[in-house]
Design a protein around this nucleic acid. Structure first.
Lengths: 236, 236
DNA sequence: AGAAAAATAGAGCATATGCTCGTTTTCTCT
DNA sequence: AGAGAAAACGAGCATATGCTCTATTTTTCT
């Protein structure tokens, strides 16, 4: 079976090489919303946004966004009610902010990751790995975003769906391109992309299960890529 | 029950041949809980349980179980608060009942579907198809169950996880058995079962997307089985 | 038809929850 | 050190929510 030539691209190298880190997530949140956030000093704001976001993820994993009360969030984050409301106007706004910031963060990273690649198969592998590495790095956000999308208001939910489909489209386009260059079998690429997306999502939705079985994100990436290659490179 | 010679086993035949229907779901709920349900007459109870369950699914799809108020449920189901509380003691109990009834329902159906089959590959295909057909028939329950599992109390959540893993184990066992008979390639069957499970879940989690693209459950079943066969039957 | 049983209705109670705002604490800069 | 600015605090208000309980309606049976 054809082997990956991207052995050196693993989670560790992703973290090292990437021009961003988990902290950029909170920085971006501050920069995007500094006009509505009542806290002036970036250092303070970023620190507290981290507290708020992390606390939200922890609580919502257990009881969901609707089940989380502002008192829960206050206790878990260590901030008072008053302090919390310096960062967002309403509970719903907190949800919107989280979704929006996360989406623009991953969009940026995903675009950067293939910017310099031209060979379709290399692009495909890189896209798959990067998506998995990103969802490993900010797994709580991915899980939260998926589970709480239904609580968004109309406009924000539409954005969510658009983002979902965009990931799928990126994969579809690469598959189509690769087939044109006779690198892959003829298949229904849109459906295939859908299936591949389901595999990617399983990683952040069932993070705990895989951890318990000792399957690292690098291992999982190999598995997904193996399924895709077998499906697309198999000869009749 | 469904046959093993695949071609004629589709969603329509599943519905016809199966010794159960959607309504059995509500009947089972009444039978299991008739000691706590304050309504005596089965006909009345089953009718209202249907109203309650369907209303719950409709509301929770939009705002989740925590976001649903008992007043919402009263309005949507057309029953008064008092009437609702004839069927369960607390809101939490409603959640427990829904999870429990659904689980025993699908366990029963899944066990019946392969009872008469011995050939591993036929068993595998039948399991996959039946799971998809079942999740098509009671899609709202599957979606609800998945999304609201986190709101369960400890004991009930453990049951949920057990049921999840059991589906996976059934698939793993068949794969192991098939490999022993040299019907399939050597692979890590547990991981493969995990991936297959993710594909099955995508059907009920993204029901709307597939509907919009005109992909029926029969088509989707073919796709999943194709992926599995390519992965397992491919020769080096 | 009429009485007993079964089922339904929905206002009302106690508590929980989102959010505000005057007060207090901490930080910054000279 | 001290004044002014920035940040944090948390009790309190208005409303929402889970659930109860009695009154009322519907069904059943003779």
């Amino acid at each position: 079976m054809p082997q990956n030539t991207d052995n050196q691209y693993n989670y560790q190298s992703f973290q090292k090489v990437a021009r961003f880190s988990k902290e950029d997530f909170y920085k971006q949140a501050f920069v995007e919303d500094c006009n509505t956030i009542r806290i002036k000093k970036e250092k303070v704001a970023v620190k507290n946004l981290e507290k708020i976001f992390e606390a939200t993820f922890r609580i919502c994993t257990r009881k969901g966004f609707q089940g989380m009360t502002m008192r829960d969030l206050s206790t878990e984050s260590g901030l008072s009610m008053g302090a919390l409301y310096s960062y967002f106007a309403t509970k719903e706004e907190l949800l919107n902010t989280l979704q929006r910031v996360g989406n623009s963060f991953i969009t940026r990273v995903m675009e950067e990751c293939v910017a310099e690649l031209t060979e379709p198969l290399a692009k495909l592998r890189t896209i798959l790995r990067t998506h998995l590495f990103l969802s490993e790095m900010i797994q709580p956000w991915f899980f939260f975003s998926y589970m709480e999308a239904k609580n968004l208001a109309k406009k924000e939910r539409e954005n969510y769906i658009k983002a979902e489909l965009s990931t799928e489209k990126v994969i579809t386009d690469i598959l189509v391109e690769a087939e044109k260059e006779n690198l892959l079998r003829t298949r229904n690429h849109q459906i295939a992309a859908s299936i591949i997306k389901a595999m990617l999502q399983d990683w952040y939705l069932k993070r705990g299960k895989y951890a318990k079985r000792g399957i690292t994100v690098d291992k999982y990436a190999d598995i997904v890529i193996e399924w895709v290659e077998v499906y697309y490179l198999q000869t009749d």
